[in-house]
Design a protein around this nucleic acid. Structure first.
Lengths: 153, 153
DNA sequence: TATTGTTATACTCTATAACTATA
DNA sequence: TATAGTTATAGAGTATAACAATA
């Protein structure tokens, strides 16, 4: 046997014990898998997770300041601009300048935005149901979410 | 009151009920928080999560094929090249051409790589301990990992 | 023909600094 | 001087296609 070819090569078994307790690694793998499934599910309507989460939030909370929404979602102000630009260009959301403080922009979903969200609900529910199914049921989902929430403020 | 300024503006309370069950959203927030803490923790030694996970895996599994490591970690083989290039340039890992099949590269950690990993252990343990602490103890950590693993193959 | 590693490329996500207009 | 939104930019991370060497 050539000396460079290690004994275990091709065994198909890889020892992951050193990564066993790595929370960040497992989080990344799980997040990537769910993200991938989201992208595939919503490919036909062309919406990103960020778009959907923003639209959902301003639909449920009309009139928040742009910076409030960004902060609530953990998105940098600077990066938030392009997201709102996109939603506004598609007619799904709109900015309204405050009359009290001319620096401020309040955010609202439009009629088209509300219809868009409503039409998306079946895809959304299917996507979430898939995750719940993989987790082993609604209780497991609630348990997971409770744990995840402890990891961020 | 100017008509554009909504009643709830400035209340500080944002309704998240529409996102309550969104597994992907909570995953992203948690993953981002843990990733940020990792970056801050390891800033002084200048290593990314990907670098560390790769080095750890080939340390525990000497002589795997480059493509085996990439696939085991869910990284595209094209993107894996730069990671190994970096580790090799820093003298922490090395490629060895198979003599059986000249297309194949086996991966090994170097002596410097093993020392590097060993020196990193305190930072690593501190980082993990922080996550376990936020979760509420080792049992919560194990529970979380078990749930996360169900979300990917 | 198929596979391994590689290059090139594009697109997304995140972070930071600096600008503008207002306050 | 400080704040809200914006612009510009840089750095990761990820995905795809195509190529060279080898099988």
């Amino acid at each position: 046997m050539p000396k460079n070819d290690p004994p275990m090569s091709g065994s198909g078994l890889i020892d992951f014990t050193m990564l066993a307790g790595a929370v960040g690694y497992r989080l990344r793998r799980a997040q990537l898998a769910v993200h991938q499934h989201f992208i595939e599910s919503f490919a036909e309507v062309g919406i990103t997770p960020a778009d959907l989460v923003v639209l959902t939030l301003i639909e449920g909370n009309p009139g928040l300041k742009q910076s409030e929404v960004a902060e609530a979602l953990g998105i940098q102000r600077a990066n938030f601009v392009a997201i709102i630009d996109g939603l506004e260009r598609r007619g799904l959301a709109e900015r309204r300048k405050s009359e009290k403080d001319r620096r401020v922009q309040f955010l609202f979903s439009t009629e088209a935005g509300r219809k868009f969200l409503k039409d998306l609900m079946p895809i959304w529910r299917r996507h979430e149901a898939r995750q719940v199914e993989r987790l082993g049921g609604p209780d497991a989902r609630d348990q997971l979410i409770a744990l995840l929430d402890r990891l961020y403020d």
